[in-house]
């Protein structure tokens, strides 16, 4: 046994909240600091929570939120008296949804080429893995330095053209990534 698989249950605290009109928010909820919304840390203070409401403070103003209804991952909240409906997903389920959508915007091929001549030291991911933007895919040793090659976008790892120990030239194709727009 002892076979380990790369895919993990997604408990990454990164979520996508999408409104009916298609407007999206990428929300990261770190355990002990301010939420990061669309890659920007926001100075939003969670003041209190009672049975009925959530009270936030942001930019010197108070925001009264109330949970109106929940149906699985569809949540309607009322902020300052106005309702907003969101459907929520973890990043990975969102990514997969994008793939079900036939006319999604995911078909961009992103080919990662070697930025310099060197040797592949390690490959962290396997074909078919889901990656987040900036996540390291493989490690390339060049000029006595190990460089991590990272994902240029959120997506799925396609074909991996190299293997560990292989030497590569500049602009050699390393990995194909199918991007999914988040």
């Amino acid at each position: 046994m002892g076979t380990s698989y790369i895919y993990k249950r997604d408990a990454s605290r990164l979520f996508i909240a999408m409104r009916e009109n298609g407007k999206r928010f990428k929300i990261y909820l770190p355990k002990e600091s301010m939420p990061v919304i669309d890659n920007m840390e926001q100075d939003i203070n969670f003041i209190e929570q009672s049975d009925f409401q959530y009270l936030f403070e942001w930019k010197g103003k108070r925001y009264n939120c109330e949970l109106v209804s929940r149906d699985q991952n569809k949540t309607t909240v009322k902020v300052n008296g106005v309702e907003y409906k969101f459907s929520l997903e973890s990043l990975f389920s969102y990514v997969r949804h994008g793939m079900i959508d036939k006319d999604g915007k995911q078909t961009d091929e992103n080919n990662i080429k070697s930025p310099m001549p060197g040797k592949i030291v390690d490959i962290f991911l396997a074909e078919g893995d889901l990656v987040n933007v900036g996540e390291p895919i493989l490690s390339l040793e060049a000029m006595k330095m190990q460089n991590e090659i990272t994902a240029p976008c959120n997506g799925v790892i396609g074909k991996i053209h190299v293997s560990t120990g292989q030497s590569v030239m500049k602009d050699d194709l390393l990995v194909e990534v199918t991007s999914i727009d988040v």
């Binding site: 909820l29 919304i37 949970l67 949540t75």
Partner: peptide, 16 residues
């Protein structure tokens, strides 16, 4: 827009 962003955050917190 501000309300909407707070709403998205609240919805996410509840869901999360």
């Amino acid at each position: 827009e501000d309300d909407e962003l707070i709403g998205a955050l609240a919805a996410t917190i509840i869901y999360a």
